[in-house]
Every structure is written in C-alpha cells, then in structure tokens.
C-alpha cells in the first residue's frame, strides 16, 4: 500500500511538471523562452513518470524486463533530448528569429554577425 502511494506521488509530480511545461510552451513571450519551458516536460516530467512506471513494473507487476525497458526509455530521452534542444535553438537564432522585447544581454549577436 505504501509503495502504491509512492508510485502515485511520483507520477503525479511528473504530471505537475508536464502541465507547467505545457502552459509555458503556450504562454511564454518568445521562441527561446518557450523552448526553456519545454525542457521542464522532458526532464522532471518524464523522470517522474518513468520512475513511477519502473517501480510499478518491478514491485507490483513483478516483471523485471518491463522495468528495465522503462528505465532505458528514460535514459535515452535524457541523453538525446539536449542535442535536439541545442540544435533547434541554434537554428532558430541563425534563421533570424529574435524576441520582440529586447534581450537583457546578447553576446551572441556581436560575435556571430
């Protein structure tokens, strides 16, 4: 029973961060800030659900192979996600996408143009 509560709390925490990230993606003022909010979904959002799912598979379903696969999914997401995020952000900047509001400090513009 206690284990079941731990699992549910983990999944709920993951969902809270996923909702926060989704709200950020919809409401943030410019492209780069939206990308920042999306990292919320793919880190703690995924980690919470993956940990909860793995615990469920190990302890309640009793299937080690399912649990290992769930953990592998989390591991792969964590390693691959930053590569894509970096490429999208850099590509957006190089394509001339700038925030409407002037940025506080922009070191990239001077060195890049």
């Amino acid at each position: 029973m206690a284990l079941r509560i731990v699992i549910d709390v983990l999944i709920a925490v993951g969902l809270v961060f996923a909702v926060a990230g989704t709200k950020g993606i919809l409401k943030m003022p410019d492209t780069f800030c939206r990308m920042q909010a999306s990292t919320c979904v793919s880190t703690l959002g995924v980690l919470g659900v993956v940990l909860g799912g793995a615990l469920y598979a190990f302890c309640i379903m009793g299937s080690v192979s399912t649990g290992v696969k769930v953990i592998l999914i989390g591991l792969l997401l964590i390693t691959i996600n930053p590569v894509g995020a970096h490429a999208i952000a850099k590509g957006a900047y190089k394509n001339g996408i700038r925030p409407d509001k002037e940025m506080e400090i922009d070191d990239y513009r001077g060195d890049f143009e």
Binding site: A20, G21, T39
Partner: peptide, 17 residues
C-alpha cells in the same frame, strides 16, 4: 521554471550570455 510558468509567464528576463 515551473513557478514562472504557473505565475503567468511574465516573470522572465531572457538574454544570451
């Protein structure tokens, strides 16, 4: 970041360092 998102997404001050 989750706090900023739930707080209406206006509390941001972006920049490239």
């Amino acid at each position: 970041v989750a706090k900023r998102c739930f707080g209406g997404c206006t509390d941001v001050n972006p920049g490239i360092v």
